[in-house]
Design a protein around this nucleic acid. Structure first.
Lengths: 164, 164
DNA sequence: TTCATGGTTTAATCTGTTTTGAACATTTTA
DNA sequence: TAAAATGTTCAAAACAGATTAAACCATGAA
């Protein structure tokens, strides 16, 4: 284990950060390791440096590639693959934020549809008062959804605004 | 179980939504139930309606109170307590978002400090090239942190902007 | 072709979180 | 006061996710 060479505190802290937003700790640590290491690393090296199994590396490497957080690098004279971190950490975060928001908006939409459906289904039986109550709740959540969708759409705009 | 009376799809969807952002599914379902039910409910009723133990209700009720997501209501003639949802869902979300961001900023700061410390510690040994590499990485992450802090500070502003 | 190396998949294990159920404490009813 | 109702706490069970280890597949060198 040649961790003596790596800024372990950084890797640890990024792992904690990632975990706190619901990401897998290991996937974040791998990214952090590649981010602070100047040279590209092979999966085997990564596994050794972080002290994790190669299966674990393989699984999380795939995730990182899906997120465009790492890129494969071919080194002359080697058949096996090496990886570099995509340095644009901000871009990665925004991309993930965006897809995350989109997913949540869909779930919120489902929630709205859920209560709407339930409302229709008992339209015949229900008393007027309950109907009105449900309606007011629906419209509130619908407004929230609209705001969330607006926010999601304008996330790139927001990103450029923050730059200044 | 008198779930026949409740918009189960709504409760289920809000539970899924909450889970997807790292919250406990049950805590979200309780909130959703109180949100769509016109009358205040007692913990026992909540437990029955969601089919969960009273211990579970108790624990999650406490969380909701901490978040200001529910409020206690006294009904004349009853000794036991009832709860209403705080209807300002947006406010609840923003409050939690804000504290969440603050927590993450602290973790990111730790990450920066981590690599800085590691950099200082090997200042004597390290070759210049590696030093420069680390420095450039540090400054990138520091910029990111600054942006994140800016964003967090202006979250209320953002909220009012979205309103329009 | 066989052997060695690198990488993936998967079943089993491990870890951490959630939920339960029982014990306990407190309050209300009678 | 005793009995019933309400709510909390906590140890143990159940569950979900992450990780490992081993089997497996692919590729390239000899």
């Amino acid at each position: 284990m040649k961790t003596s060479n790596t800024p372990d505190k950084f890797i640890e802290a990024i792992g904690n950060l990632g975990e706190s937003i619901g990401l897998n700790r290991t996937v974040c640590q791998i990214y952090a390791l590649l981010y602070i290491t100047p040279e590209p690393l092979s999966p085997a090296q990564i596994g050794r440096m972080l002290g994790i199994s190669k299966g674990n590396v393989s699984i999380n490497m795939k995730k990182l590639e899906e997120w465009n957080a790492v890129k494969k690098v071919w080194l002359k004279g080697y058949s096996r693959s090496f990886y570099n971190a995509n340095e644009d950490m901000e871009g990665i975060i925004f991309d993930k934020l965006k897809t995350g928001l989109e997913k949540r908006n869909r779930l919120l939409e489902e929630a709205v549809n859920g209560i709407k459906k339930s409302l229709k289904a008992k339209g015949k039986i229900a008393d007027k008062k309950l109907m009105r109550h449900y309606s007011s709740r629906i419209s509130k959540v619908e407004n929230l959804l609209k705001q969330a969708e607006l926010f999601t759409k304008n996330i790139d705009l927001l990103k450029s605004l923050l730059k200044k």
